[in-house]
């Protein structure tokens, strides 16, 4: 009876108060996400179905943009983006695992210093760092200029090659692999390591049977982060790669800018999101994080 009276009072006030408190508290975030995240995404998806070279949502929905893409050579850019992103991830695994292992298990009190050395470059803009590499690698630059004047060696610049692009991406995305991996390795309980050794496992067997599987969550998260970032990379291709390789991101940029064909750019973006999304889903399904974390 009392509850009913109170309900009536509240109902007599503002209707908004009938909404559960949790939802009311979450409303600002929901609005922010709707406006800042969902709306642009929906706009891009919407644009991808508009007639070519139009700038509104009033046109008749069509699949012509997607047909254009499948008839064009954009798949080459897409394969370059995916291929170099994959190569970046593989190189990062090889570089980061030993460093992360060292940070957790070997460097001891020097770990903080090493971590700082990896973090400090993050305070400088990515473009500035890439131009730093440009000055370092360019003909008569820091590296080749020094070799020439001091040692009299004249070497070809590696600039504007696929190798330079890979170098740039590995360099820029290293922290995104290193830190999840460090966390993953630090989650391996030391006594599990000792128990494996006590049960007769060699150092390699301890790594293979215990350390690697137990640090897998960190490794998977690192791979996903760096892969998604590297597929979306563009500056490395422009600054260090010259025009040797055209990534899919470049095609998208061209469509939105020079070509003034927003629907085509939108369709390319949607395809890229779909492909990356599916790959990430497959990875997450294949490597069940909860199982690794022992939650099941």
């Amino acid at each position: 009876m009392t509850a009913r009276t109170e309900g009536a009072t509240a109902g007599g006030g503002v209707g908004f108060l009938r909404v559960p408190a949790g939802f009311r508290a979450a409303l600002p975030v929901i609005l922010f996400l709707l406006v800042g995240f969902a709306a642009p995404l929906l706009a891009v998806i919407g644009f991808s179905f508009m007639p070519a070279r139009t700038f509104g949502f009033t046109g008749q929905p069509t699949l012509e943009n997607y047909i254009t893409i499948f008839e064009s050579t954009s798949y080459i850019s897409l394969l370059w983006s995916l291929g170099l992103a994959l190569a970046t991830v593989l190189i990062l695994i090889l570089i980061s695992y030993p460093v992360a292992y060292g940070l957790v298990r070997v460097f001891g009190r020097w770990s903080t210093l090493v971590t700082l050395l990896f973090v400090i470059p993050l305070f400088v803009s990515e473009n500035v760092r890439l131009y730093g590499w440009l000055l370092f690698l360019i003909k008569n630059g820091v590296l080749l200029g020094t070799l020439k004047t001091v040692f009299g060696i004249e070497a070809e610049s590696m600039l504007f090659t696929t190798g330079a692009i890979l170098l740039g991406m590995v360099y820029v995305y290293l922290p995104y692999m290193l830190f999840p991996l460090t966390l993953g390795i630090s989650m391996v309980p030391n006594d599990a390591r000792e128990a494996a050794s006590d049960l007769g496992a060699s150092r390699w067997q301890v790594f293979k049977e215990v350390e690697l599987p137990l640090s897998m969550p960190g490794l998977v998260i690192g791979c996903l982060l760096t892969f998604v970032l590297a597929v979306g990379a563009i500056a490395e291709y422009k600054v260090l790669g010259g025009q040797q390789v055209i990534p899919i991101t470049h095609d998208i940029e061209i469509a939105f800018t020079y070509a003034q064909n927003w629907p085509l750019g939108a369709a390319l973006s949607v395809l890229l999101m779909l492909i990356v999304g599916v790959l990430v889903m497959i990875a997450l399904r294949r490597f069940d994080l909860d199982k690794f974390l022992g939650r099941r």
């Binding site: 309980p189 006594d191 599990a192 000792e194 128990a195 494996a196 050794s197 006590d198 049960l199 007769g200 496992a201 060699s202 049977e209 215990v210 599987p213 137990l214 199982k291 690794f292 022992g294």
Partner: peptide, 29 residues
Amino acid sequence: PANRRPTCMVFQSLALFPHKDVGDNIEFS
């Protein structure tokens, strides 16, 4: 070293391998 001694220890924390099933834990050695 521990891995070449014919002795074995049951740890205070047990130190079971959380990513392995009961059977795989027992069969580890």
